[in-house]
Amino acid sequence: MVNFVNMVDTPALAAHINNVLEDVSIPELPNHYRGKVRDNYDLPDGRRIIIATDRLSAFDRNLAAIPFKGQVLTQTARFWFEATRDVCPNHVIGYPDPNVVVCRRLSILPVEIIVRDYLAGSTATSILSLYKAGQREMYGVRLPDGLRENQKLPETIITPTTKASTGGHDEPLTPDEIMGRNLLTAAQWQRVSELALTLFARGREIAKERGLILVDTKYEFGFDEHGQIILADEIHTPDSSRYWFRGSYDTRFEAGERPDSFDKDFIRTWVVSRCDPYKDPIPEIPQEVILEAARVYISAFEAITQQTFDLPPAGTSVLERIRHNLADYFPSAGQTGTTGE
């Protein structure tokens, strides 16, 4: 395992092993929707409250709950939203709590945009899985023969997929299919593609400054009430992106070894080595693996943002803190809340 920036002390982190946010049911808030990782509440005035839980989702199922994962995702995305707002407008209004973003409610595009710079991945729809199966034509892109696992691609590519419901599978799409099925118009697809590639280029540049490689990432976009395309969900987090350490990449690639990384591949790799996660029951993930995953997430936040992650006092209830910080948004408060800035 790689030495990370400001690695959190294991005993200190272990004190929080049972203080995880698995569910955020807040009866005072309206229109609850539970996603794979986030719980959402839609306010009557067109705003949305998105609460990042500690659930870890992969292989179309929830695998575990990782301490502080939701906070890491929210605050890492906050860093990136602020670092890219000159590239693309985003949905953020404010942050009333470390796990919470209040944002504009959008009509989310029915296509997920995945941008890739390397032949990598572990899911059934990843270009590495398809390439290993002998495919060279995928997502409307043709890849050359002779590429090696984790190799830099000849050029940055977009691999769009459908947006599956919870428990469903994302399916590969080509640009022709996107337009042929009227998921997006040609002009919308061109605009989304331009934004995604520009956002990725910005992310790649900043990651490089931090000694990291932004390998691939997922973007979600939506339309606002004026039809403008807005960046939504999250950006360049350890859940939506794959990062490798630049300093060791060349040596490990030449040796045929897996690049040093911090992302949810840590848990995915543990699971894949023990079962077929699409068919078999998932074995119970040991506490030490859960704690190591938490350390990976926290270290990712620190390396990406160059900020220190401070652990709260042991025994602090994440849910109670969130409820307290969202009290102004409860209808009984007589108002719809502040921006949370």
Rank of each mutant, 00 (worst) to 15 (best):
T269S: 14
E171W: 06
N325P: 06
S57K: 01
T161Y: 14
S240V: 02
T159D: 05
A187H: 10
N40G: 04
E137D: 13
G167P: 06
V289A: 07
P11R: 00
N19R: 15
Q307F: 05
R181D: 15
G211R: 07
T251Q: 12
N325I: 02
G140D: 03
L143Y: 04
D310P: 12
I213G: 07
D276W: 08
I235V: 15
Q151G: 10
D224M: 12
S240Q: 10
A83Y: 11
R116K: 13
V271I: 14
D263G: 04
M179S: 10
E22Q: 09
I158N: 08
S299Y: 03
Q335R: 11
T125N: 06
I235C: 13
H32V: 12
V8H: 04
K69T: 05
R246H: 11
Y131N: 01
R136Y: 01
I235A: 15
S122R: 12
R204H: 13
F68N: 02
D45M: 11
N6H: 09
T174D: 13
V272N: 09
D328R: 01
L199E: 04
F4A: 11
D239P: 07
D276G: 07
P172Y: 10
E82D: 14
S299K: 03
K279G: 02
D328F: 01
F59V: 10
H226V: 08
K132F: 00
L214Q: 14
K36M: 04
M179Y: 04
T53G: 09
S126L: 02
A77K: 10
R136M: 06
V296K: 08
Q75K: 13
R34T: 14
P27Y: 14
R55S: 11
R85Y: 12
N6V: 05
R34M: 14
F68A: 04
T338K: 12
K69C: 03
I127P: 10
C88W: 03
S57N: 09
V2Q: 12
T123A: 12
I282M: 01
V72N: 11
L21Y: 01
A294H: 02
I322P: 07
